[in-house]
Design a protein around this nucleic acid. Structure first.
Length: 830
RNA sequence: GCCCCGGUAGUCCAAUCGGCAGAGACGAUGCACUCAAACUGCAUACAGUGUGGGUUCGAAUCCCACCCGGGGUACCA
């Protein structure tokens, strides 16, 4: 028996153990990825942090989850690349520099040092030899080089367009960086529109592939993210249709997904802010049009996006000819049509589109139904399935007749007719826009382009990279609506690389999402000074086998990184189609049901938790609390419970009396079965990311081992050693310090993290007997012990012979017997 | 509005193919230890699976409708 109840239990000193093993790990570097290893390679990645202050609970969670997989792969014998670095360009550093009259680098590199120390204390299996920061010139040099490649291929270009503008951060934003309520993703300010010339990446040229590949990713990515990306890409199929305007050479082309409703087109609407509206308006209507347009421009995005306000618009005074009815229909300008989607012009079909219905009702325009709604239909516009009607209307002679056709057939017939006349064609449209990448801020990678009055946009020659940031600090960085780099005149004014004449550098910097769109390539050869990354090594290590991160990047970073990967593949720089073979999105850590925040005063300090409970207990708590994807409410969990469990597990290692290397095969079979079954189940659970259940199984094994020591086979049994070693290895995935301490106490050399996953003895997974359930009408009546390979007939006979069953069946007729050997018999009787 | 995910003891969560609703934990209660408490150990109790239908010998699991919660998206024609 172990110590009697009531005595002080032996415990280990958490702080001392942490200090001890940190030193050992730094010395032996157990997680350095070897490029030349013969072992099969795995690439584990978690999103690198922005260096704002110290690490917080969110970092602790994602890292703890991610580390389970990385450490498991090492134990299973893979060579694992598990790198970490910093996404270190960005606004917080710049804003801090303005406040403190300092340089953004001060804030950035100070925080990086703090976070690095915290990560090391946290005991994560990162290969620190590969770390870098995106703000290092040795990194952003290659960000700029990639920009040049994109520019060469026509994937980076400049255009003038209405863009999202954040008045607080004083810079433009990409569509992805404006939230659904029209606020800035970064600072929450209300985003406005400006007409500006900006740099774009041609993400739309990969729209179809970005969408198609989601099918392959579906099994290994979270549904949420797949769904969000599908929505964001927003593919729709429809047709372009040309409408002729009297006295105008060019027809107006509209985009519609419902060409079958063309007979119901009673008007046309164009976006009020599109150039087309300005071109079309008659002199007579111009004053009204301009007044309307000014009014709309003044309205905020938030007002514009409200869908429940009445429709507004102005008649432009011109008409277009409906190509199937020949009727002249009025053309209106309105703000419910978007200038930058489709063609910025829409055929108004009030019978089939609710928005058009509202507009027609408001403006007194005619309404014609072209799809027969069901008899009980009570709505206004009808957009569902049904027979086509009024196409053409009774007694009207038209060149096309689609009456009676169901929607899909009518669409095809209409498109075929229009195409035959040369006034229409099938078209696919995407909601995805090109990625606006230029920013009017300082702390980012300068865009390596020189503007020359003679040669235009000239790429900075590759041998002149990096284009380093000029030294600006404090008040120089104050946002003023144009890039701070413009103030560095010595930096701005350069000779044109082509003609040698006076020219100026582009003064914008790149969106920091550009930096993070390719960082996972750089990790394969982080010190390479001759290229962005080594293609052979990238092909050997990648794509990333598991990427762990947060859902907030569902359509930002994850989409941009996918786009980059496809573009790099097409440049021959890598052979991956997709960067992340599997993606695990981790939940958030909240407190008392709410997001942690300063204003709510419910923040939980990671540092304090670590000081109170120790690294292992905090990590274990985060892994055990819930499935990885679910949020963890810190108010619901118990790090104290984790401490108790870890001490309990550790105590086992002190009870083992057999020598290291003792052959376990002579040990207690009962305990051995538990050990091997646990290891076997843990494999499947880890691979399916069910880390919380792995912890529960480990707890079971600890309980079973405790019982075996105290009241079973005793501490000297070789099966006990085997079980405790298995506990140490299982814990090495989650609680590295405790596992290491146990391993040492068991008489082994460090490190348990590379001890290797135990070989599972299949014979021990087979049960001698199983409990079969006998049901009558689906209700359990008896349990009988049977052999796991019992035949259906034997099991049925055994069930029928059971006294309880016999009794229950007295006087009844057995109608049917369902046998699912070896676990169940269900008797239907009456 | 549309799309996706989820709803199991007081709480967090298990139940892998449709087959015994409970593995693990938190909290609670009791007992042991203690002068007492904390710690520790042992033990116990607590749900019929959001609601209503359906399929099935059998449903937490599949289907339909609805309710609640979370997320995405939204004049995208």
């Amino acid at each position: 028996m172990s110590e009697q109840a009531g005595h002080e239990r032996e415990t280990y000193d958490v702080d001392a153990v942490q200090d001890k093993w940190q030193r050992v790990w730094q010395e032996i570097e157990p997680f350095k990825a070897d490029d030349d290893s013969e072992r099969e390679k795995r690439y584990a990645l978690t999103m690198f942090p922005y260096p704002s202050g110290d690490l917080h609970m969110g970092h602790a969670e994602v890292t703890a989850l991610h580390d389970v997989i990385a450490r498991y792969w090492w134990q299973k014998g893979y060579e694992v690349l598990n790198p970490m670095g910093w996404d270190s360009f960005g606004l917080p550093a710049e804003n801090a520099a303005i406040r403190n009259d300092a340089h953004p680098a001060d804030y950035t590199y100070g925080n990086i040092a703090t976070q690095l120390e915290s990560f090391q204390k946290y005991g994560v299996s990162f290969d620190w030899s590969r770390r870098f920061n995106t703000s290092d010139p040795s990194y952003y040099r290659w960000t700029q080089w990639l920009f040049l490649k994109f520019h060469e291929k026509g994937l980076a270009y400049r255009k003038n367009s209405p863009v999202n503008w954040c008045p607080n951060d004083q810079t433009v934003l990409a569509n992805e960086q404006v939230l659904a309520d029209g606020s800035c993703e970064r600072c929450g300010a209300e985003v406005t529109k400006r007409e500006l010339t900006q740099w774009y990446f041609r993400t739309t040229s990969y729209a179809q592939e970005l969408l198609d590949c989601l099918d392959d990713l579906q099994p290994t990515w979270s549904d949420k993210v797949i769904n969000a990306q599908r929505n964001w890409i927003g593919r729709s199929e429809g047709a372009h249709v040309d409408f002729i305007v009297e006295g105008r050479e060019e027809p107006i082309t509209v985009y519609t997904t419902r060409p079958d409703t063309i007979f119901g087109t009673t008007f046309m609407v164009v976006a009020v802010d599109a150039a087309l509206a300005d071109e079309l308006v008659t002199d007579g209507q111009r004053p009204a049009f301009e007044a309307y347009r000014d009014e709309i421009r003044k309205a905020s995005e938030i007002e514009r996006m409200a869908t429940d306000r009445p429709k507004t618009g102005v008649d432009l005074g011109v008409t277009a000819r409906n190509p199937v009815t020949g009727e002249q229909i009025p053309i209106w300008a309105t703000d419910y049509v978007l200038a930058d989607y489709g063609t910025g012009a829409v055929m108004g079909v009030p019978g089939g589109d609710q928005r058009d219905w509202e507009f027609a009702t408001q403006m007194g325009l005619p309404i014609v139904r072209t799809t027969q709604p069901p008899a009980d239909f009570e709505g206004e516009a009808y957009a569902g399935e049904g027979q086509t009607i009024n196409s053409p209307a009774d007694g009207v002679d038209a060149p096309l007749d689609i009456n009676g056709m169901p929607v899909e057939e009518a669409k095809k017939a209409t498109i075929a007719f229009l195409a035959g006349k040369g006034v229409g064609e099938p078209t696919v449209n995407f909601r995805l826009r090109d990625w606006l990448l230029s920013r009017q801020r300082y702390w980012g990678a300068p865009i390596p382009i020189i503007h020359c009055p003679v040669d235009g946009e000239v790429r900075v020659p590759e041998d002149q990279l990096p284009v380093e940031l000029p030294e600006l600090r404090g008040a120089d960085l104050k946002p003023k609506g144009t890039s701070p780099l413009g103030a560095a005149s010595e930096w701005v004014n350069v000779a044109c690389p082509t003609c040698g004449g006076p020219a100026t550098r582009d003064t914008d910097t790149m969106d920091t999402f550009v930096d993070s769109s390719w960082y996972f390539f750089r990790y394969v050869s982080p010190k390479d000074e001759t290229q962005a990354f080594d293609t052979d090594l990238a092909n050997a290590w990648g794509p990333i086998d598991l990427y762990v991160g947060g859902d907030e990047h569902a359509v930002l970073h994850l989409l941009y990184a996918r786009f980059f990967t496809k573009a790099l593949r097409d440049m021959g720089l890598v052979n991956w189609d997709e960067p992340f073979s599997a993606y695990l999105s981790q939940g958030k850590v909240v407190n008392n049901g709410r997001k942690m925040s300063k204003s709510l005063g419910n923040g939980v300090s990671l540092g304090e938790q670590l000081a109170e409970f120790g690294v292992d207990a905090v990590r274990l708590t985060l892994v055990f609390a819930s499935p990885p994807e679910d949020n963890i409410d810190w108010a619901d969990v118990s790090p104290g419970g984790s401490v108790r469990f870890l001490q309990r597990a550790w105590r086992l290692s002190g009870d083992v009396t057999s020598a290291p290397g003792t052959d376990p095969t002579a040990g207690d079979v009962g305990l051995r079965k538990v050990t091997h079954k646990t290891l076997h189940e843990a494999e499947g659970l880890v691979e399916n990311h069910r880390f919380n259940v792995v912890v529960a199984r480990t707890m079971e094994l600890v309980n079973a081992t405790r019982k075996a020591i105290d009241s079973g086979c005793g501490p000297e049994d070789p099966a006990v050693r085997e079980a405790v070693e298995a506990v140490a290895i299982l814990l090495s995935l989650v609680a590295p310090y405790t596992a290491e301490e146990m391993w040492e106490r068991l008489g082994h050399r460090p490190t348990v993290a590379r001890a290797g996953w135990p070989t599972i003895d299949e014979a021990l997974l087979v049960e001698d007997s199983v409990v079969a359930v006998v049901q009558i009408q689906g209700k359990v009546k008896a349990r009988i012990d049977v052999s796991p390979d019992v035949s259906a007939a034997d099991l049925e006979a055994a069930a029928m012979a059971d006294p309880t069953v016999e009794k229950a069946l007295e006087g009844k007729t057995v109608r049917k017997v369902i046998v699912r050997e070896p676990k169940l018999v269900n008797i239907v009787a009456g």
